[in-house]
């Protein structure tokens, strides 16, 4: 088995364990740990899953550390420091498949809001002595640094999707992770559309499903924590929402946990930037 794999960002590492008992690792970068803890939420089946995989790296549950290689490496968190950028490149090279989990790893997370601000100013505000802290100018998704084989979205990720992914992994089938809009789940559940019936702004039509339409089911608009779905027509939704709210209110809707994802970022930019940051509103083709 190759243990000294060269560091080549974006290159898939070799297969490590047997297909029947894959070696799995879970690592984190800039994030809250909530996504990896979702694994512990699979309480009923946790032991059964543990019997079918080799969990060689999971700081939240074991003290065992591994340098790899991994058949599947789950990565939580955004890349926010130069050290993290080096680490992810090294980990990619020893991981056969790399799966990003959660809004931070897949889209940059809430901390990516700082990407709109001056880096040095932010450091000065956050840390009493910024000199001790090394950080990148932007908090960015893992896919900006290395190739990613699969994504589990959400803030946090969905236990059901995590289970589906793990079952697909150990049974050898293709995981069913739909890229459709939240709206489909809303309608399947029979939830009344909060946007149409109550005028509550909702990102459901442009957001990927997976949460089970959690927020609309409780009378809240979707705030996009699973990030943009395929063909997310954020421009059309923003234009519709602009009819009865200010540009900054429209921009703010997109400035959540997946703000840095390109379709959402474009709307934030077009509507004056995220809260607290005023950038000139660009000319749009809204008219």
């Amino acid at each position: 088995m190759e243990t000294q794999a060269p560091i080549t960002p974006g290159r898939r590492g070799p297969r490590a364990g047997t297909p029947q008992r894959p070696r799995i690792g879970i690592v984190k970068f800039a994030s809250c740990d909530g996504c990896q803890l979702t694994l512990l939420d699979l309480e009923d089946e946790l032991l059964a899953i543990a019997a079918r995989v080799d969990l060689v790296e999971f700081a939240e549950a074991t003290s065992h550390r591994s340098a790899g290689p991994f058949d599947v490496l789950f990565v939580e968190g955004s890349i926010s420091t130069p050290e993290q950028a080096e680490d992810i490149a090294r980990l990619r090279a020893v991981s056969h498949r790399l799966v990003t989990i959660g809004a931070c790893a897949t889209a940059g997370g809430i901390q990516a809001i700082r990407n709109w601000f001056d880096h040095e100013e932010v450091r000065a505000v956050v840390y009493p002595q910024p000199g001790y802290v090394d950080s990148l100018a932007q908090a960015r998704p893992v896919a900006d640094f290395v190739a990613v084989d699969a994504e589990l979205r959400g803030c946090p990720i969905s236990p059901a999707q995590l289970r589906e992914f793990l079952v697909a992994l150990v049974t050898g089938r293709r995981p069913q992770l739909p890229d459709e809009a939240v709206c489909l789940e809303c309608k399947r559940r029979g939830v009344v559309c909060v946007a149409v019936a109550q005028g509550i702004p909702c990102l459901g039509p442009v957001t990927r499903t997976g949460c089970g339409a959690l927020c609309p089911a409780y009378g809240r608009g979707c705030y996009g924590c699973f990030g943009p779905r395929e063909s997310a027509n954020t421009a059309s939704l923003a234009k519709w929402l602009s009819d009865d709210r200010s540009a900054s209110d429209v921009g703010r809707l997109f400035a959540g946990f997946t703000a840095w994802s390109p379709p959402f970022r474009a709307m934030i930019d077009a509507h004056g930037g995220p809260p607290g940051q005023v950038i000139p509103v660009k000319e749009t083709n809204d008219a």
Partner: peptide, 12 residues
Amino acid sequence: ERCLACANCTLV
């Protein structure tokens, strides 16, 4: 350009 392809029309 306007359609969100959100599928609401088909499900209702």
